[in-house]
């Protein structure tokens, strides 16, 4: 049976908005507003949504790079939210992150060798010689060569840099990798290379991924299950295949219809979304999506729908199904 590696319960992040002479709090941006999900060992959970829907904030909260306002993150039975800074620091050995921008996420003044060796030093793994050996092995694993070790990040292309970023995340042999839009800054031709690399590494090291992206095609390719976020809330989460075949939430349907089909002969009904995404500082009452939803009902304007299991393993937060 599948084992749960990470469980998120009621996670919230409200960034305060302060104003006035005294810096009084005048409101808050609800970047992530009460989301719950779990990740099984060895699977890939995709998180998709528009820009600003809180998916990156969620990823960073899981690593405690941003402290949650409320809620629990349980990783291997430990609630990360209540850990001390030092315990959390040690836990990061088992959970690592791959960042979006390979041009910004590597220290420009360090050589590749130093970048990759540092996680080992920090967690006290191996002797100097062993660490060098591990760095060279890891470079080969991600498709670079050991002679690249002495170079600086600016001497690599975007795809190569992202490989270095992935190698850094793998150095401590983590169980969970949170990939925050790891391919969205890359050329399409390079994207598939990096995605394949991630898939191969998953098999090789028995990794669990949380894969954050805004590109549904990419997410479909790599994910076992997919969660869809809108305005800081999780609106639907289920198996990847099921989500793409039979989306329940109107927002998911609109998103899917916006994915281009590489065949001009295929005609498809587009469910274009109208209007802008509302401000997370002042989200609509009731269902956050009701301002743009074609199937909006009276209840949607007043009551916030809970994420419910509509079909076995298929969760959606929508009043259409209650």
């Amino acid at each position: 049976m599948t084992e749960v590696l990470l469980k998120v319960d009621g996670l919230k992040k409200h960034f305060p908005i302060t104003g006035g002479v005294l810096g009084k709090q005048t409101g808050s941006v609800k970047a992530v507003d009460d989301i719950s999900f779990w990740v099984n060992k060895g699977e890939t959970l995709g998180l998709v949504g528009e820009s600003g829907c809180g998916k990156s904030t969620t990823g960073r909260m899981l690593m405690r790079l941003i402290d949650p306002t409320e809620g629990q993150v349980v990783f291997e039975g430990k609630n990360l939210v209540t850990l001390s800074d030092n315990e959390m620091r040690k836990t990061r050995k088992d959970m690592q992150m791959v960042f979006q921008d390979p041009f910004a996420s590597l220290n420009p003044r360090h050589t590749v060798e130093k970048i990759l060796e540092e996680p080992l030093i920090v967690h006290g793994i191996g002797t100097k010689k062993e660490r060098k050996q591990m760095v060279n092995e890891m470079l080969e694993v991600v498709g670079l060569s050991s002679y690249h070790a002495k170079r600086y990040p600016h001497q690599f292309s975007g795809g190569q840099r992202q490989r270095i970023g992935i190698a850094r995340a793998l150095m401590t042999r983590p169980k969970l990798i949170i990939a925050d839009e790891p391919v969205s800054a890359l050329d399409v031709s390079i994207q598939s290379q990096v995605l394949n690399l991630l898939e191969d590494l998953q098999k090789e090291f028995q990794l669990t991924y949380i894969f954050i992206a805004h590109d549904l095609g990419v997410v479909k390719h790599i994910s076992d299950r997919v969660g869809v976020m809108y305005l800081g809330r999780l609106v639907e989460i289920t198996d990847a295949d099921r989500l793409y075949e039979k989306p329940l939430h109107p927002y998911t349907r609109a998103l899917l219809s916006a994915v281009p089909i590489p065949d001009p002969a295929v005609k498809r009904e587009m469910e274009l979304l109208t209007g802008d995404i509302p401000s997370p500082a002042n989200p609509p009452k009731g269902c956050a999506f009701h301002t743009r939803c074609k199937e909006c009902m009276e209840i949607c304007k007043t009551d916030r729908p809970e994420l419910r299991e509509i079909e076995p393993g298929h969760f959606a937060a929508c009043h259409l199904y209650s």
Binding site: R92, Q96, M97, G165, R168
Partner: peptide, 10 residues
């Protein structure tokens, strides 16, 4: 981002 990454590394 590399400072965020350094934190994430632990």
């Amino acid at each position: 981002e590399y400072i965020m990454a350094a934190k994430a590394v632990g």
